[in-house]
């Protein structure tokens, strides 16, 4: 209870601030609509109001506050509108419907998971190579580290279009971007992990006359597991971002990124916000899943707290 109470208070404050912010954000359109419907507002005339501050307008027209929370295309949708849209597009719609967020979420999720799997496996393989070959370590490692400072996402549109022009479409290009983004965190984390046993432990295995393979399976790999999970958590979040950004440039019609894009084209703010919350929920679930796996694995290995 001591843990949860402050979090609940902070979240409640955020929601309250959000409701408060809705009033000035949406007051201009609310007043225009009200005037059209024949309600007296102060001051009259949209042209007069255009240059007035939103907060001043909101204070002058307390009667219209309710309207600011129930618009079709608000500048800032109220929390209950977003929740209603989320409910409507996940539970009420059929899963196969083009308007179902579960359908769009699945499109993005499948690309994310495929890319994440490819990136993780490739990253682990490269890390094993780096740890065992000095030449590879010295050649590749500086580039792997330097590449993390590069805005890799900038390449996303090009990958999509190039693969499209050679005939690869749909899931795979997005998965490649996801794989690319989750690849480097895994490489760097795994290299660190595979090197984490100290000299004493390596010496002990030497006294047992263990071969390189045995050292790898019995010492290096188990020692690297905590590091692997730490980078997996970074990697899966990066994969999701990669899949979403991968959906932007081609004007894709399916996926959460496409929902964001079409929402911004047509000014469907509620759709954008609900897609945004869907990505947030998806990311939270994925990270929580990995964290759960981490806890279970580490406990089995006797490393858990």
């Amino acid at each position: 209870m001591r843990q949860v109470f402050p979090v609940v208070v902070v979240v409640a404050v955020i929601v309250a601030l959000w409701y408060l912010a809705c009033v000035p954000m949406n007051i201009h359109t609310a007043l225009t609509d009200a005037e059209r419907a024949g309600v007296a507002v102060t001051p009259e005339g949209a042209a007069v109001r255009r240059d007035m501050s939103a907060i001043g307008l909101a204070l002058a027209n307390p009667g219209q506050w309710g309207d600011t929370l129930a618009q079709d295309k608000p500048r800032l949708p109220a929390p209950h509108q977003v929740v209603a849209e989320l409910w409507d597009t996940t539970v009420e719609k059929k899963v196969t419907s083009k308007r179902s967020l579960i359908y769009h979420g699945w499109v993005t999720l499948s690309a994310t998971l495929l890319g994440f799997a490819i990136g993780t496996v490739a990253g682990i393989v490269l890390a094993v190579g780096i740890v065992h070959s000095r030449a590879m370590d010295m050649s590749v490692m500086p580039w792997a580290i330097a590449s993390q400072t590069i805005p890799i996402l900038a390449i996303a549109p090009m990958i999509i279009v190039v693969l499209n022009s050679v005939g690869v479409q749909g899931l795979v290009p997005k998965a490649i971007i996801s794989a690319y983004l989750s690849f480097f965190p895994v490489v760097v984390g795994m290299v660190k992990g595979l090197r984490s046993p100290d000299a004493m432990q390596f010496d002990l295995l030497r006294t047992y006359s263990a071969s390189r393979g045995e050292t790898f399976w019995k010492l290096r790999l188990p020692a690297s597991v905590p590091y692997l999970f730490a980078s997996l958590k970074v990697g899966i979040a990066a994969s999701l971002v990669g899949a979403i950004v991968g959906e932007l440039p081609t004007g894709a019609v399916r996926g959460l990124g496409a929902r964001l894009l079409t929402g911004s084209y047509y000014g469907q703010t509620i759709q954008i916000w609900s897609a945004l919350f869907a990505t947030a929920i998806l990311a939270a679930i994925l990270v929580a899943l990995i964290a759960g796996m981490e806890r279970a694995t580490l406990r089995r290995m006797g490393l858990g707290r």
Binding site: R75, A237, V241, I244, L256, L260, L276, A280, A284
Partner: peptide, 18 residues
């Protein structure tokens, strides 16, 4: 720390609109 793990790039369309 929860928000730090979210895909915040997604807020871009909203902020561009504002």
């Amino acid at each position: 720390s929860f928000v730090a793990a979210l895909p915040i790039v997604g807020t871009a369309p909203i902020l561009v609109m504002w």
